[in-house]
Design a protein around this nucleic acid. Structure first.
Lengths: 242, 242, 242, 242
DNA sequence: TATGAATGAGCGTTCATTCAT
DNA sequence: TATGAATGAACGCTCATTCAT
């Protein structure tokens, strides 16, 4: 029995969320194989047959977890990255750093008037915030799902969407600069950026005391400025009004 | 039975290597839990009791795999990164890119006369080459071990050593520049660099046709030059005589 | 499948008794180590996982058997030995033998008016009857549990309780006689008495045709009268109305 | 490896004794099933195939242990019980206790001039001394072999010989008295006597500090005098010159 | 809707025993 | 004589999954 009083006869939708919550917790704690359906049902405060009735066998259950948490993460990031929809004055103050490294404005595209680097930073920040607030979800997505072939596809798809978004952002940044880069090179850049972020996020999941926003800034500095420039003392700074 | 003719009565040392080879293959194929001792013994071309007699129960066997492959990887990298021991003329031509981005020479330190960025690039190249040539090992180290708590420690230790090496390199690079950076910031940089490399390496493991050396260069470009400068058209180029 | 029709979906309490019955049978037949959980489940007419679900792993199962049978045996004896609760006339005829050997009355103590030797004999009789009627239980308690260290404690405890009861009886007998005996000597006497009974009981377990009541009388004769007096032709005789 | 330096190439007979020593130790420590041939070979300081070559498979090895230790015990007892071979004066002083309970002389039979009770006591004393000095052997004989059906026969045979000896002694005692007792009754008496002794011996095996000779006297008192007479204050005392 | 009862199938581990040297 | 190398066979235990109520 979980802590919840477990009122009987809850509507299906509610029960399903309870189960998914429990499943994510247990999968993150044990890993896919070591997690037992018994423990999950127990954690959810219901009996095993209910789990099967609502969410199917173990693989489907895990997939459902992946789906829900993956979608949440993606939406958090995409929402944060989306160009501001409204008037150009709203974020006039959002600019790149004082002067060390120039931001790239992607104005004129579909988006609002934010500079490209500011949008990137917002995405990173949203990502780290999500991981900081949902460690279990991150653990399931990043640590557990990776090792299990049956879910590799699912994961790869989600990752591909992220890569695509990032690569798209980079591309539009280049276009705004009047420059062009070959697709594959862009893709590797995106991979590297995403990988760096994931790695630091994973570290964050084990260090609850760390500040997600600060990590976002540090990563941004590294990724945007580059090790070489960093060594030379250059710094990127987050926009002020965020 | 494996394809090997399986000559009977081999000495212990040989059989142990056979077993470890088989174990790495199977663990990478199935994951820790889904891998069965039967399949491993089968793949090694011997009976299960021998596996237990020589390498102990499943957890110890996995740990042994981790150890062997982790050590191989680490040695490959560290050897590549080590400053050249001999005469200064040997790598006179090893320089940073023509002019876009200046390399940082760590000459005068303990090491030989290679510039800092060249050494970093050598390390990356060694890393990607290893992953390209030992996909199974990489899969075990990076994808499987991560999800299983019992081995998190082992992994974290190895990772920490890499991070330390990288952070050390960065630090010496900074010192050579006459600059100084706080420890934590250095650490996050190292994390990001390692994470980016791992992520791309993982992609490499699924794309056998990719060229490790080229990936190393791309990562180096990204990591060294930074996304911002990259967008501005700056490029880092590998030294010639490698 | 056992001979029982094995109605499905029995309540837990019933199934547990079935399992214990089967376990006692198999343990007695094979011994602790040689008994397999498969055979036990089979004998009980259910599947192995049920055994584990209800009664735990092998050691716990064996302990449960020990507990149940030990308790049954102890209760049989203690009930039989307990002084009659009611009127003194009830067993007026219960006396020791005609005259050969005087019985010792423990009247005036807490108990009813039975003589001490009569109570001892009742205990012995109950013991032999139990063994005669539950050979498997006896085998488990006496032959199997003894050799296995993990259960030595359990057994020793039960045995100690018996010894204590017997020693207490002897002691009260002595007190009634106005005599006193040192504790250790009493204890060895109790050990000897219990040991002699166990030994004969074990013989009984292998000779189903023997009459428990007769054995009780013989043992009583030996133990009460002593070899020396027996050789001299003295006899103890059971009270009539039992 | 055992503590012995294990000089190679020992003659077969010596090696066999080493093995049996080791086997008895391990069987007593673990029980028949839990003892592994590996541990036995290890304890003996030789390799497993040697054990098989010399003493056969596990069951035969255990039987050999049983045989050796059983024979030792039997010989110790029988030697002690054997009527003194020579002149009647030798043990003139060997008499029964001062006067409480009369000893029964079996003079005139095949034996020397010892009284019957003295011989019984000598046997008991030899028995307890053996158990006190060979706890492992006792454990194997009494605790381990009993539970394992394959050896029940072996054990029963040995026990039968003891019973026979004891019953024979009792019988000769009766004959000397001019009395006669039915076979079955005699047998039960012998069983009881042997059982009482075994039980106390088992207690002795767990209490190394106890004095075997004292235990023998106590048992003798109980068995000879009987509980009833004991309660009445009668005592049997060992002859003086032993 | 909700669950206690039940199981097929499989895995990790061990051990007595033998072969080849 | 003596042993390292090797295995067939079994056993304890667990788990995902389903049935009957």
């Amino acid at each position: 029995m979980s802590s919840t009083p477990a009122f009987k006869r809850l509507p299906r939708a509610v029960r399903e969320q309870q189960m998914l919550d429990a499943a994510v917790k247990v999968f993150s704690r044990r890993g896919f194989h070591a997690a037992s359906m018994d423990e999950i049902a127990d954690e959810a405060g219901i009996s095993k047959p209910m789990v099967y009735a609502y969410l199917g066998p173990k693989e489907e259950l895990f997939t459902a977890c992946l789906h829900r948490e993956g979608t949440r993460l993606m939406e958090a990031i995409i929402t944060a990255v989306r160009p501001l929809p409204v008037g150009p004055t709203a974020d006039a103050a959002v600019g790149s750093a004082p002067g060390d490294v120039a931001g790239v404005s992607d104005e004129g595209g579909a988006g609002g008037g934010r500079t490209f680097d500011a949008r990137l930073w917002c995405g990173l920040r949203a990502f780290f915030r999500f991981v900081g607030a949902n460690r279990d979800a991150w653990s399931v997505l990043y640590r557990q799902a990776r090792g299990e072939q049956p879910f590799a596809g699912e994961l790869t798809t989600m990752r591909a969407r992220i890569i695509e978004v990032v690569a798209g952002m980079l591309d539009r940044g280049l276009v705004a600069e009047g420059r062009e880069v070959a697709g594959p090179e862009l893709e590797v850049m995106a991979y590297a950026l995403v990988g760096a972020s994931e790695s630091v996020a994973d570290w964050l999941a084990d260090h609850p005391e760390a500040d997600p926003d600060e990590l976002a800034t540090r990563i941004m500095n590294f990724v945007w400025t580059g090790a070489g420039s960093l060594l030379a003392g250059h710094r990127w700074r987050p926009p002020l009004n965020h």
